[in-house]
Every structure is written in C-alpha cells, then in structure tokens.
Design a protein around this nucleic acid. Structure first.
Length: 573
DNA sequence: GCCGTTTTCGGCCCGACTGTTTTCAGTCG
C-alpha cells in the first residue's frame, strides 16, 4: 500500500465526513493529514515513530492510517458510505451546491443523486426549504445543465492562447494600468478549469463595463465592485473570473489568484506566525496598522523570509519544507537547445527534413533529431530499413548544406505487441539516436505492457522511451504500466525517458518527473514530437511541465551541448 | 482532529459575492 493510496482513502474520508455535516475543522484536519501523507517522500512504513512524525498527523489520524496499512480498508469510511446514498458525492460537482445544501436536500427531500435533484427542482420543491429561495432553485437548475454540458477541464494550450488574447485586449482599455492571468494556467497545470484575470485600475466600474461588453460574453455570473465573473465563448466555452484592484495591490492580488489554494493557506499561516495577515490586498501588520504591498512577487516571499517560489511549484508539495538554497533552480526555456523527436514527410510529418531543420534553426537550436516512424506503424507511413538508409543520405546532405545546426539521424521505433522491436539491431545501430515507443495494444495487462517497455530499454541501441505512459489528456487514460519498474529499468540500463511536450500528452507528467529525478536520478528529454514546423512551438508546455516536476537544467538532456549529448548516448552502447 | 517560547483550551486562512435574510450562511477560489 503506497502513500498515495493511503492519502486517497483519508481524503475520501474527509469528503464523506463533510457531506455528513461534520465539523469543518475536523474535516480540514483530515485533508491536511492526507496531503502530508501524499507529499511525504518516505513510505509510511519506514517512519520510525509512526505516522505522527508527519506534520498534521496526530493520534486519531495515525490510527486511521494504521488501519488502512493493516487491512487495506477503513471501517469508519465504509460505515459512513453505507449511511449515505452512493450517488450523493456526485452533487458536489454542481456549481453552487456545497456540503450544507446537499445535506439539506437529502434530509428534507430525500435527494440521493443527480436524477432526484433534477426531479425536485422541476417540481419546484426546492424553494421553500430553509435557506433556499427561487433564485437558488434556478441556480441549481443551471448548475445541473452546466455540469452535464460543459467539459470539466480544458487543455492548457487552448486556455493559454485565449487568456493571452484577453490580457492583450484588456491592456487596450484606457482605464487599465496592468493586467495579467493567474490560476492553474499560470502554474502551467496540464488542464485548466477557468481563467483568472487580475486587473490594476483606478476605475473599476469602467473596466467592469468594458469586460461585460467584450465579444464572446454569454452570461454575467458575478457582477461586484471588485470581482466580475463571466461565462464566455472564445473558442472554448469557459468561465472567466476577473479581479479589479488598485495598481499598488496588483502583485499581491496576482499572487493570491495564482494559488494554489493549498499554497496560499500555507502563506497565510506563515504570516500569522509573524503576527501579520495576508490577503489579496497585501500583508497587513496590525501593530503598525499598515499594509505592505510589493512591486514584485520576490519581495513578498522575501518579507515572509521565504526563498522565491516559482508559480509552477506553488502546490504545497514540499516547497515550504525547503530552506534557502535547497529549492531547485528550475529549467527555463532559455536553457533549451535541441529538439530530439520530430517527424517529416518521410512518414506522417508535413514537411521535408530541410524545412524542419530550418525551422529549428530559426528557433535558435543547436541540434535536432529526425525521428520518423518505423515500418509496422502503417497508418503513419512507417519507414523500412531501406527507407532509413535513403533518409540518412538526405540528412547527410542537409547537414552538409546548413551550418550552425546538427541533424541527428534517428527513428521512433515501435515496440511491437509481442514485445519485439520493429527493427533488428543491425539496422538501429547505424542510427545516431533511437527512440522506442508503444503505439499499439494499449489494452494489454499492466505486466505485459511493462515487460514490453523493459525489454526495449534493455536493448543497448535504444536511447529513449517516448511518451512512456501513452495517455491522451481528456481522451485516453494511460495504459496500465508500472512506472516504478520502468524507472528502475531506466536507471539500470541508462535509458532516457521522454517528456513529450504535445499539450495533449505532457507525458511524463509532473509527479512522475519529480520521482524520476528525486528517487532514481533519471535523465529526461523534453521533445516536441512535431509533425510540422509550427508544432516545434509546443516546447514551452513541456518546459512548464518540467518545472512543475522540479526539473533543473542538469536533469534535461536537451539543455546539454551536443558533445555532451553524444557522449551520453555512447555510454549506453 | 491537531496544536502550543503568549496557550493543554480555544483557536484553526482570508475575502467577495449571492441569496436569503433583518444580520448572516453558504459557496467559491
């Protein structure tokens, strides 16, 4: 039983207690404990004095954890679940409904799930309950519709482009001093639920009016003096929350709305230890009666005697437990110097080798690898051994012609369903760079899929495993691969693992990256997997994900100069 | 339920907005 599973059960316990109407501080205590368990780098069973060593875990939670470790289950949680209808937690997803309202609906009207809720709303039975009026009934009806019809989360890239656009547009408004976006978007989470904008202005009413008249506004959800919430159709149908603050409050508000919520809680607790109060408007010192504001986020952290924590790390996943100098110096886009996974017209790409090389050169890269698909991937026009030889001649010619960039001859070779590789050793040993990846038989058992990947890594000519878990965000779950075995295998064989920057993949994901680095010291390569020159620009999403995984320059192959990369590749052979 | 160089009891992060209310609870982030 790993920490993650224990944490999940404790978290579920907190959720169920909340629905039961249990004291919210008690609920929060379990939530805090669950997070401590999840963030602990040490397996629970290795803690000398037991779970209470973790911050926020006392006698009560320790007993709960022990029961989970011993029996794999939790009687109290199962009892709670028996007492409530199994569908009830689903209602927590309806905007506007929280534990208190759900509890009332269940107790008074016997609502046990979504279908029941719809029925009592349609019958007009909701208004008239204590605390429920006609508006609330209408809001619930709309909440249900919203939950049913809209996607829960959007891809980072889709929201990113929209938000950039809106910020641009806001800056054109004469009353706007400064504008920016925060939220999970700024933290570069792989999917994003809504857009959080922060605007500095002396005339909030003007900006609010400007906002409400922007093209794409479907509905005004909130319309306050300092906060406007809009439902917008801007390519994606998404909620946009805008905070309107004075210019001097911009940084503290931006920080506040960058979150995460958990990170902010820790920030406020820390301020409290100094006798201060942190809000979106600044750090308030009640003794002096003054509110501190800042020109840069760095100053805010400095004031709280913390090292600067980059947005991508603000998840309360251990960033507060590090002292000055212990936090990683995160990789930046500037460190990146070569893309090692891309396709050309030889297989399913859009342009020639030379066109890809020129596009890469335009982006300032020192090297790239051309890695078209291998023969068995027919749908993508995979290359035969003979094709590869002819492609090599073309690559040699382009290398001859272009200066300042080096093109490696590579391949993205299929790992076949039976575990064999798509080419024999004598073919791949001629190549500079060999990627292996799974494109077929995703539904195999975890053990078989894991075996396929392990076998590929044992081949001395295979340098890297691409998109190791095979997930497609919002479309396809990862295959059942055992990542601990893959990490061990990668470490033992010196195989590189990919962070694929395609916004629908971002594979490996942040949590895996951090484990690959911390627990195994594995080298990661960030690649675009581009099928056209434009797709080379997906790298920032990969770098953002790498930063969420706490990766530094030294952890990432593509930040190394070519000679060092080649030396690393020779090592495996 | 957890925690303590002000505390073993009484707090627990902070504020905006809405809708239901005559002063505030619930929800959200």
């Amino acid at each position: 039983m790993d920490n993650k599973k224990v944490a999940r059960l404790v978290q579920e316990l907190a959720d169920m207690m909340e629905l039961h109407g249990e004291n919210s501080f008690k609920v929060n205590a379990y939530r805090k404990a669950a997070r401590a368990v999840e963030n602990s780098r040490m397996p629970l069973t290795d803690l000398k004095k037991g779970p209470t060593e973790l911050d926020g875990v006392g006698k009560g939670t320790a007993a709960v954890i022990q029961e989970i470790l011993d029996t794999g289950r939790l009687q109290y949680l199962e009892d709670l679940k028996k007492e409530l209808p199994p569908e009830l937690p689903v209602l927590m997803n309806i905007p506007g409904l929280g534990p208190k309202s759900i509890h009332t609906l269940y107790q008074s009207l016997g609502v046990t799930g979504l279908a029941d809720l719809e029925k009592v709303v349609a019958e007009g039975k909701v208004k008239g309950l204590p605390g429920f009026g006609p508006k609330k009934e209408k809001n619930i009806a709309e909440g249900i519709r919203y939950y049913r019809e809209r996607p829960q989360r959007f891809l980072l890239i889709d929201v990113h482009l929209v938000a950039e656009n809106m910020v641009e547009r806001l800056r054109e408004c004469p009353s706007v001093f400064q504008a920016g976006y925060g939220g999970s978007l700024r933290r570069m989470k792989e999917t994003v639920k809504d857009i959080d904008l922060v605007v500095a202005t002396e005339e909030p009413q003007d900006v609010a009016k400007y906002l409400k008249e922007m093209p794409g506004v479907i509905q005004v959800i909130n319309d306050g003096e300092r906060k406007v919430s809009l439902q917008m159709d801007v390519g994606v149908d998404i909620q946009v929350d805008v905070r309107l603050v004075l210019p001097e409050q911009f940084i503290t508000t931006l920080h506040h709305f960058t979150g995460s919520k958990e990170h902010n809680v820790r920030i406020r607790q820390r301020a409290k230890a100094f006798g201060w109060k942190v809000s979106e408007y600044g750090i308030f010192d009640p003794k002096k009666g003054e509110e501190l504001t800042f020109k840069k986020e760095e100053e805010l952290y400095q004031t709280l005697q913390l090292p600067y924590i980059a947005p991508e790390m603000r998840e309360d996943r251990g960033e507060f437990e590090k002292k000055e100098g212990e936090l990683p110096k995160l990789i930046t886009l500037n460190d990146y110097c070569g893309d090692l996974h891309m396709h050309t017209r030889w297989s399913d790409g859009a342009v020639s080798v030379k066109e890809m090389a020129l596009a890469a050169q335009n982006r300032g890269y020192q090297y790239i690898a051309i890695t078209d698909h291998s023969q068995s991937l027919k749908v993508a026009g995979g290359l035969t051994a003979d094709d590869l030889k002819r492609q090599r001649e073309e690559i040699d010619a382009v290398n001859e012609e272009l200066s300042g960039i080096t093109i490696l001859a590579g391949v993205e070779m299929d790992i076949l369903p039976d575990g064999r590789l798509d080419f024999p050793d004598e073919v791949i040993k001629e190549l500079d760079w060999v990627i292996a990846s799974v494109h077929t038989s995703f539904q195999q058992s975890g053990d078989r899929i894991t075996q396929r990947i392990l076998h590929a890594m044992e081949n001395p000519y295979v340098h890297m495993i691409a998109h190791p878990t095979g997930r497609l965000l919002t479309r396809r779950d990862p295959y059942e691969v055992d990542m601990d075995r893959v990490f061990r295998g990668a470490k033992e064989t010196g195989t590189i693992l990919e962070l694929n920057s395609n916004p629908r993949r971002l594979d490996l994901k942040d949590e895996y990256l951090r484990r690959a680095k911390d627990e195994y010291g594995i080298t990661i390569a960030i690649n675009s997997d581009a099928h056209s020159p434009k797709e080379l620009d997906m790298i920032p999403y990969g770098v953002g994900t790498a930063r969420r995984g706490w990766l530094e320059k030294k952890d990432v192959l593509n930040t190394w100069p070519l000679e060092k990369v080649m030396e690393r590749l020779r090592k495996k052979r």
